[in-house]
């Protein structure tokens, strides 16, 4: 079977109880562990969601998108501009983020998705870099000064909330977004025929076309969807973090992290980005908290990537399934190269 079912099948007992226990733990998290861990939790949830958004185009469709982080920044700036420059409430900024990301992603998809492999990666990387440079010089984005967003302490969509907008509030917003992203991925990519068509074009585009699949259309749909998801997270992040700057939310490291998380977890799987996202995010946070250096985790991640690419190209999910081709490094590299059309 494809996807993550075999991993989930290995859980002892009734799977429903595991999901129920996980759900209860996630819902009670801020109250059980306090605001510091709520902040850690919301960060982890956001990165899991972002890794999943990259996994849609990178893992399921096999397009190595190195400009994906730009949509996170676009979402953040769309919300920020709506709130700061036009004085709208966050919900308008949120809607604007979706619309701007969808329109831009479609316009970008038309020329760039004609490219494959390294060419697509370079084109998207260049696009992200140009968007960042534009944000640094435009007045509406605050230029090199960035944007400071207002925070309405006690209302959401104009309705009073029972508790102040705090880490706890944003934790639940991220939990909702992350759960929605997982649900959309599960339904669309693992259960629906749409997902089979996406995987078909990744495995063999000509064969997919010969079977009635309009591969151009399917690729554009996946790309737009994945970019919109990244923008949604970006808009909420901007609202949460209050101050946004192009050098932060449009930095290449945003994309790099998504790629690394999906790759380490398991490309083109539902649960891979959860494992990869948690691992990378926690390594980063723990190295920052306990070792006083937020970059110490980078060489560690580099080593992990090398090990993954050489010995376990299916990532953590592959290891859990027992697919470790220790003796077959060449085959592993070839498989990964084929997945992204790099050979």
């Amino acid at each position: 079977m494809s996807g993550s079912a075999p991993v989930l099948d290995r859980l002892p007992g009734d799977r429903r109880y595991w999901f129920l226990a996980l759900g209860v733990l996630l819902l009670a998290w801020p109250f059980l562990f306090g605001s510091f861990w709520a902040r850690i939790g919301l960060g982890a949830l956001m990165w899991i969601g972002l890794a999943q958004s990259w996994n849609m185009i990178g893992g399921y469709a096999g397009y190595l998108d190195f400009g994906h982080g730009a949509y996170f920044g676009i979402g953040g700036f769309a919300a920020g501009i709506a709130m700061v420059q036009f004085g709208y409430p966050f919900v308008v900024g949120f809607a604007l983020a979706i619309v701007v990301a969808a329109v831009l992603a479609y316009l970008v998809a038309v020329p760039t998705l004609r490219l494959t492999g390294a060419y697509f990666a370079i084109a998207t990387w260049a696009l992200a870099e140009s968007i960042k440079q534009a944000a640094l010089i435009l007045e509406i984005t605050g230029g090199t000064f960035g944007l400071s967003l207002p925070r309405s302490p006690d209302t959401f969509i104009g309705i009073a909330v029972p508790f102040a907008i705090s880490e706890t509030f944003f934790y639940y917003v991220m939990l909702l977004l992350c759960a929605a992203t997982m649900l959309v991925t599960y339904v669309l990519f693992e259960r629906h025929e749409f997902g089979y068509r996406v995987k078909a074009l990744r495995d063999d585009q000509d064969a997919a076309e010969s079977l009635g699949i309009d591969t151009t259309r399917v690729k554009r749909q996946v790309y737009v969807l994945s970019c919109v998801v990244a923008a949604v997270f970006g808009s909420v992040y901007a609202w949460y973090i209050v101050f946004i700057h192009p050098n932060d939310i449009l930095a290449p490291i945003v994309t790099d992290r998504m790629v690394i998380m999906a790759l380490l977890g398991g490309l083109g799987t539902l649960t891979g980005p959860i494992f990869g996202g948690l691992l990378v995010f926690l390594l980063q946070r723990l190295s920052s908290v306990f070792l006083g250096s937020s970059t110490f985790y980078l060489p560690l991640i580099g080593t992990l990537i090398m090990i993954t690419v050489l010995f376990a190209p299916s990532g953590i999910i592959g290891i859990l399934r027992g697919e470790i081709g220790r003796d077959d490094v060449r085959k592993n590299l070839k498989e990964l190269g084929e997945k992204f059309d790099l050979l």
């Binding site: 089979y196 995987k199 078909a200 495995d203 063999d204 064969a207 010969s210 009635g212 699949i213 309009d214």
Partner: peptide
Amino acid sequence: LGRTFQIVSPFKNMTVRQNMLAVQTD
């Protein structure tokens, strides 16, 4: 108008049934 290829090209990461369900018709 259906066709096959010289080199067999199953969608290897999917099951046989999913391979069949991926086909799109009008």
